[in-house]
Design a protein around this nucleic acid. Sequence first.
DNA 1: GACTTTGTTCATTTTTGTTTGAACAAACCC
DNA 2: GGGTTTGTTCAAACAAAAATGAACAAAGTC
Lengths: 171, 171
Amino acid sequence: MMQFMEDRSVAAHSALPPIERQVVSFFVDAVRVLGLPRSIGEIYGLLFISQESLSLDDLVERLQISKGSASQGLRMLKNLGAVREVENSADRRAYYQPAVELKPLVGGFIREQIRPHLESGKSKIAQLNTAASDVADPVKRQFIDDRLDRLDAWMRSGTRVLPILQKILGQ
Amino acid sequence: MMQFMEDRSVAAHSALPPIERQVVSFFVDAVRVLGLPRSIGEIYGLLFISQESLSLDDLVERLQISKGSASQGLRMLKNLGAVREVENSADRRAYYQPAVELKPLVGGFIREQIRPHLESGKSKIAQLNTAASDVADPVKRQFIDDRLDRLDAWMRSGTRVLPILQKILGQ
DNA sequence: GACTTTGTTCATTTTTGTTTGAACAAACCC
DNA sequence: GGGTTTGTTCAAACAAAAATGAACAAAGTC
């Protein structure tokens, strides 16, 4: 009995096994490149390399992160379409599985992180075009118009590239 | 004489004019999305909307940033190929101009910010494949191999997409 | 209806990353 | 060689972002 309890105690505090640890570290680096918080990488990484779906408590225990982080991280991952809840009768906890195809991951990232910025960028350029009409000096005016036209072309290129990105990465 | 000095003094402390301010703000937001420091956006943004090339001191004065920030920011922008030094006889200061075509900007960003991460990711996966050969349980082993194969395919997709990105955005 | 389990929220703490500015180096000038 | 201008470096200060954990809500159990 005592033996059993000690085992559980050790399990609760032990570090992740090597493979799991390395995969988590891989995703921690990957999400930093994408500008997402470390915990997102930890959670997704552990789910990615786990055969069984995991509960919030599993994540808290194995990654040694707070319940708050796990909860917020899972919400963001759900919004990104990177994890989904799975049924688990005989247990009222929610269990999570990762989306492991590149396509939905890329799609979610574009939808949640890229498009909103492109949209707000376009509206800022619209404001700028309004402000530019107040410029008196015609030489300066022409220069500014040229620059704003460029910016606009950049945004259009950006918009154009997204579906192509999704197509290529969806394979 | 006194009049003249007061004008200079005011100019030194005055805020950026509206258009310049808005364009700088646009680029500050843009570089945040790309995970680059604010000062990079400020410097590039002001250069982008300025007809004349600017010196380090011009940037310090107009953006009200420190010489340190301006120096570091310009170095990063030069490394990215986003600004270039221009000659200015009659003055031993260096003057800077922005690259305003999308192509070199995208190219520089990919070269400096994306490729290094893709490379280090690939080598991490190689390490993981080595570590995976120590897994005893054949079922677990197969699962891990599947996941690592997926990761590898992701990285290959990533590598494949970069030249296409450059091509599309270079117009 | 009191108690337990599960998960969320959010004010505070902690961590991370950026900016500052003083010290320094390099190049030029007289 | 002393003085000036221009630009860089880096330790310390600061700001922004993320993680924590206590309080809370919701739902289930006895």
